[in-house]
């Protein structure tokens, strides 16, 4: 066979594989959305869950998921940025940085159930934080930090070294070069990574079952006092998230409309994650254009 023919065969195989991947993706998404979307209503999104009767919603779970996401990002972004900047811009390659990189890698391959149980033993029991949003946020930070750090380090590294030399040759310090030249140039990549990781956090259940808990106590959305037990912002209250809710409804719920709730919740979850993913691309591009002043 000649090169041209081989080329044809190879392209054919690749196209087939790509088509298979897309098909699987579309099938899963289509199934979930098709089953769930018809049951999503304003009422469903804004009313509390019911334990025994039909007609419950997911108001608290949806809020808990978002709140936990925000807290997790607030905790993990500064750490990830610090570690990523250190690894990419300051650390020289030696046994110590090798150790950090290996640890990050090991941490990133830990199953989330293990992270959850570890969080349960350490934060919930030992440190007495109880089933709480705080415990959940810390567990999610453990779960999120390795990939986030990696992503930030990679984004910074992908900025050409020529840019660092330009900064150096103009008498900028290492820190100025990093923060004013390298970081802005890497920002779109970092943002994309951050939003994608937000999707992972939002859909995470296993790490939360034993840390943030499985109950959604009724909270008062007009109570802005973070320290009040009934405030929706209180980080010490247990908080069942959307993903945990889906798991719970499917395993132990006695509501007559459990099926409906689970499929509608799944659809909401998928839609939110899709919004994150598409938003990541859009914002990343937009930001890049703004920073580089290309119109």
């Amino acid at each position: 066979m000649n090169a041209k023919k081989w080329d044809h065969v190879a392209s054919g195989v690749i196209y087939t594989l790509v088509a298979a991947v897309i098909l699987i993706l579309v099938a899963i998404l289509g199934y979930i959305l098709f089953n769930g979307v018809p049951d999503i209503s304003w009422h469903f999104l804004t009313s509390p869950a019911q334990s025994f009767s039909a007609g419950g919603g997911i108001r608290d779970q949806l809020f808990n998921s978002l709140y936990l996401l925000v807290l997790t990002i607030i905790v993990s972004l500064p750490i990830g940025l610090g570690a990523g900047i250190y690894l990419s811009e300051y650390a020289s390659d030696n046994w110590f940085t090798d150790l950090i990189r290996t640890s990050v890698e090991v941490l990133s391959s830990l199953p989330s159930v293990v992270v959850g149980l570890f969080g349960y033993l350490l934060f919930v029991i030992k440190l007495n934080l109880g089933f709480s949003i705080l415990s959940g946020a810390i567990a999610l930070t453990f779960f999120n930090l390795p990939l986030l750090t990696r992503n930030i380090e990679e984004s910074l590294r992908s900025v050409p070294n020529l840019q660092r030399e330009a900064g150096m040759s103009l008498g900028l310090s290492n820190w100025k070069t990093t923060t004013k030249i390298i970081l802005p140039a890497a920002l779109p990549g970092i943002l994309t990574g951050l939003i994608l990781s937000a999707g992972r956090i939002f859909g995470e259940a296993a790490a939360l079952i034993y840390t943030a808990g499985q109950s959604a106590p009724t909270v008062d959305y007009s109570n802005w006092n973070v320290f009040s037990a009934t405030s929706f912002l209180n980080p010490m209250r247990p908080a069942e998230t959307l993903a945990v809710h889906i798991w719970k409804v499917n395993t132990e719920s006695v509501t007559p409309d459990a099926n409906l709730i689970s499929s509608a919740s799944s659809a909401v979850l998928i839609i939110v994650i899709l919004i994150f993913n598409l938003g990541a691309r859009f914002l990343g591009n937009k930001l890049y254009k703004k920073i580089t002043a290309t119109k």
Binding site: P160, L162, S169, L170, P184
Partner: peptide, 19 residues
């Protein structure tokens, strides 16, 4: 840093900042 402000450098490949 001060030395480099007195003695500037231009490189082989153009490296303007992404600004």
């Amino acid at each position: 840093y001060e030395v480099r402000q007195h003695i500037g450098m231009v490189f082989q490949r153009p490296n303007p900042f992404a600004k």
